[in-house]
Design a protein around this nucleic acid. Structure first.
Length: 286
DNA sequence: CTTTCTGTTAGAAA
DNA sequence: ATTTCTAACAGAAA
């Protein structure tokens, strides 16, 4: 689940819950999840506080009060960041544990405990995600690997056209390339291309200005809508306030292979493009 | 049982 | 320089 809208949701939820709480302990169940030495990681974090949380693409950036450090958190495919206070869960990842189930579970690889006895769990079934402490001064090296975001003020159709120009790769693989455009993952790439009426395996350089513009508009619309609906996709997530976020009901092609296209009635197909499962309507998308 | 698939991406190979 | 493929891992589905 964690693409830009999901990470944005997690960031906002965490901001209203863990900021300025003192960390009293850090448990490392699976030390390799943390890219730093375990002893150094604990030493820097215990007694410290999270003072701000931001995001670039799908990467969370947590500012620490002391030490001039930043904590980077990437959830990759199955990572979760779940805050638990007095039995209530807030924020998430690809799916939250069922309500009533308890944490930690067997996938809780890093656990932060705060002075008010609340906890922040980093869970990850496949263990692709990671946490990493870096010096503030090294942030630039990290952000250099990220391209423009769909909702960034200076993202324009011309910019997208520039990215597509001269490239022979399928348009979908460019939408997924974080160095070019940050935040779009497999679900939203398919949804954006459906909304734009463009086949995922079209060579980027073959797209007309009109098609580029449609992809531009669709990317902004869909990412904004997904954020509005808390980006929730395949889960039964309910947050502490009882709000259900479910972007899954807006999905037009993702996971709908074999079903009827909402727009034209043709059968939605699934193939592989750029090594990823790819869903599209062969009638609506050209 | 084995094989294939899965929301990511760094890094190698082509 | 760009594009494609694979590995990292665990578990569900076929």
């Amino acid at each position: 689940m964690p693409e830009l809208p999901e990470v944005e949701t997690i960031k906002n939820d965490l901001k209203s819950n863990v900021i300025r709480k003192k960390i009293v302990s850090v448990d490392l169940g699976k030390p390799r999840i943390v890219k730093n030495r375990g002893s150094e990681f604990k030493k820097q974090l215990v007694g410290n506080e999270f003072i701000d949380i931001s995001r670039i693409g799908k990467l969370l950036i947590i500012s620490l009060k002391r030490g001039g450090l930043l904590l980077l958190v990437h959830l990759k495919m199955t990572g979760q960041l779940i805050y638990c206070h007095q039995g209530k869960y807030v924020a998430g990842g690809h799916s939250l544990p069922k309500l009533g189930s308890s944490l930690p579970n067997k996938y809780s690889h890093v656990i932060f405990k705060f002075t008010d006895n609340s906890k922040l769990f980093f869970n990850d079934l496949r263990q692709f995600g990671y946490l990493q402490l870096i010096k503030r001064g090294d942030l630039k090296k990290v952000t250099n690997n990220y391209g423009i975001e769909p909702l960034q003020f200076n993202f324009k159709p011309e910019r997208l056209a520039e990215i597509f120009k001269k490239r022979t790769a399928p348009v979908k693989s460019l939408l997924l390339n974080q160095k070019l455009i940050a935040g779009i993952g497999n679900i939203y790439a398919d949804e954006v291309l459906f909304a734009a009426g463009v086949l995922p395996d079209r060579q980027a350089k073959s797209l007309s200005n009109k098609e580029v513009k449609k992809i531009f508009v669709a990317s902004q619309k869909i990412i904004a809508l997904a954020i509005k609906h808390r980006g929730t996709t395949f889960n039964d997530y309910v947050d502490a306030d009882g709000n259900v976020g479910s972007f899954v009901k807006f999905l037009k092609v993702y996971g709908r292979q074999g079903k009827t296209c909402f727009r034209c009635g043709a059968t939605v197909k699934k193939t592989k493009v750029a090594g990823r499962g790819t869903h599209f309507c062969p009638e609506c998308q050209k």
